[in-house]
Simulated scan of single mutants.
Amino acid sequence: MLVPVDGGDLAVEIHDGHTAPVLAIHGVSGSRKLWNRVAAHGFSLITPDLRGRGDSSGVPGATIRQHADDMVRVLDALELPSATVAGMSMGGYVAVDLAVRYPDRVRALVLVDGGFPMPAHAQMTEEILTAALAPQLAARERTWTPDEYLAVQAVVDPLIDTTDPLVREYYTHDLTADGHLRLPAETLLADTRDVVFGESRWQELTVPTWFVHAEWSVGADSAPAYTAEQAAGFRAALPVLREPVLITEVDHGGTVLTRKGAAVTAEVLAEALK
């Protein structure tokens, strides 16, 4: 379905399942297909392509606040007074902003390796960020066949099985029919800057919140986005946060794109739905 927002229409996919509806928000370079493997566990998911991504690639603008306002439009279009909300990576920051500014619209919150301040962000500068994004920006200057694009993803993150049909669907959704990456460079940069240099309002959360985090960031044995000690610190500082859940032997993307990660995330989501 298409949902009118400022500047255009958001593409929203509805996964029919056997649960109450869950609004699931993807990460900075992702799309609605990120949640394919979690949806396979039988959840009723509402998965938008955020502005600038997937079938919403023509919608301009990119800030955490704007994405959160768009999510209110999605709930309104579906005539949902409230819903459980899940956010992965940047989607976690969008979900936090949504829950803080519209707490009556969020029944419960599940944050997956995002939403809380990442320690690495404190060391980031504009120059370091631009350098870190250089490969992704360069990838937008050429065309790709699906097989070429999947081969690169398999090298970037060997823990994710790119032969999995649900994963393949996720990655190929990044491409236009003529092989260009849909996400514009300016949108990628603007949203990444907002995540890295913006301020998460996590300490203002008042809704029941769950936090799932990965043992690694990208690839085996890499430093995680959040350590267990940091997650425990969030738990101590935020009364509405339940005991954090660590997914071992997966990395950031693997929290939802691998069978093991998706299974644990699904368990936490089921708990939040109770």
Score class of each variant (00 low, 15 high):
Leu183Gln: 07
Phe234Ala: 08
Arg182Glu: 13
His121Gly: 06
Pro103Gly: 14
Leu241Lys: 10
Asp104Gln: 14
Val28Arg: 01
Asp251Ser: 09
Ala190Asn: 08
Pro224His: 10
Val28Ile: 15
Gly198Ser: 10
Asp164Leu: 08
Gly179His: 08
Phe234Gln: 01
Pro165Ala: 11
Pro208Leu: 05
His180Gln: 12
Ala83Asn: 01
Phe234Met: 01
Val245Ser: 02
Asp221Asn: 15
Thr172Leu: 05
Ala225Glu: 05
Trp35Lys: 08
Gly114Val: 09
Thr163His: 04
Met1Asn: 05
Gly52Ser: 03
Val22His: 01
Ala237Val: 11
Val74His: 02
Ala108Trp: 01
Ala11Asn: 15
Ala95Pro: 12
Leu246Met: 14
Ala262Asn: 02
Thr258Asp: 04
Lys274Met: 10
Val155Asp: 00
Gly179Asn: 09
Ile128Leu: 14
Asp9Leu: 11
Thr172His: 03
Asp49Arg: 06
Val59Gly: 01
Glu215Asn: 06
Pro21Ser: 07
Met71Pro: 03
Thr258Ala: 05
Val212Met: 00
Ala177His: 09
Thr206Lys: 07
Arg51Cys: 08
Tyr171Ser: 02
Arg182His: 03
Gly261His: 05
Ala11Asp: 14
Phe197Asp: 12
Gly87Ser: 03
Arg168Gln: 10
Leu175Asn: 14
Glu267Gly: 07
Leu34Gln: 11
Val212Pro: 03
Ser56Asp: 10
Asp16Trp: 02
Asp251Cys: 10
Gly219Phe: 03
Leu137Asp: 07
Arg242Cys: 13
Asp104Met: 06
Thr19Ala: 05
Leu189Phe: 00
Trp144Ala: 07
Val264His: 11
Gly179Asp: 15
Arg235Met: 01
Gly253Ser: 08
Ser57Tyr: 04
Gly54Arg: 02
